[in-house]
């Protein structure tokens, strides 16, 4: 197990400067909003920016983590390591998922503090519901984006020509099937269960039902895409 832990640490350390920058930027933005915002303006809603920001930046960072191995020839040492090839995408995925976890924790804490300071008088939601809903949204999409990127990179490095074209084809192909299958899949998965959420908006109690279909569908698609990427690393990817 030690080699796997060592490789995970390497993956985690490789982009630590970018992680540091993202953490600092999120904390600075949250502090700025807490200190200068007001409940009458929409300015504090900028607290959502780090969420969407990291949802976009981290998949690019994951793609870069793969591409840089081939560009800088370090794929030679990586693929020659005496471990099963599937560990390579899995550990890169997990390292970036840890980045996402850290950034999620900081962003959500910032968001919660902004909510308590500026909006708690108008809208009331329990702390547990706040974190649960945030995590459900953030991690389901993160898993899907990361898995799609991992599959695109695995496809690219399974061939020696037209890599960019193949990566793009995988992206649009996945998107096409995902959109086409979404409706029936979500409807079917909605049967599995739901979560009832009680909100108080301007003194009035409102009950919301959060169905599990959509996050489950996103997570299942992510797992399938990651499975395909792992398969490509085991059977096709090469230097």
């Amino acid at each position: 197990m030690k080699p796997i832990v060592t490789l995970f640490k390497k993956e985690f350390k490789e982009h630590r400067l970018i992680l540091f920058f993202l953490v600092v930027a999120t904390v600075v933005l949250d502090l700025y909003l807490l200190l200068t915002g007001s409940s009458d303006s929409a300015k504090p809603l900028w607290v959502l920016a780090p969420y969407s920001g990291t949802l976009i930046i981290l998949p690019f960072l994951l793609a870069h983590a793969f591409t840089s191995e081939w560009k800088s020839d370090t794929a030679y040492v990586l693929l020659a390591l005496p471990i099963r090839p599937f560990w390579i995408p899995v550990l890169k995925f997990l390292a970036l998922l840890c980045y996402a976890g850290i950034l999620f924790g900081i962003s959500t804490l910032g968001g919660y503090l902004v909510y308590v300071r500026f909006y708690a008088n108008h809208v009331s939601i329990s702390t547990a519901d706040f974190w649960l809903l945030s995590a459900l949204f953030y991690f389901s999409w993160t898993l899907l984006f990361f898995s799609l990127v991992t599959l695109m990179e695995a496809a690219k490095f399974s061939v020696h020509r037209y890599r960019g074209l193949l990566g793009t084809a995988v992206f649009f192909g996945t998107l096409f099937f995902w959109v086409r299958l979404s409706d029936p899949a979500v409807r079917w998965l909605d049967r599995i269960g739901h979560y009832t959420l009680t909100l108080r908006i301007e003194g009035e109690l409102i009950t919301q039902t959060i169905r599990f279909g959509e996050p489950l569908w996103i997570a299942i698609t992510g797992a399938v895409l990651l499975g395909l990427a792992v398969l490509l690393f085991e059977t096709k990817v090469e230097v």
């Binding site: 020839d73 040492v77 020659a80």
Partner: peptide
Amino acid sequence: YLPEVQPYY
């Protein structure tokens, strides 16, 4: 394995 290229991080 010592490849022709410089493979280290």
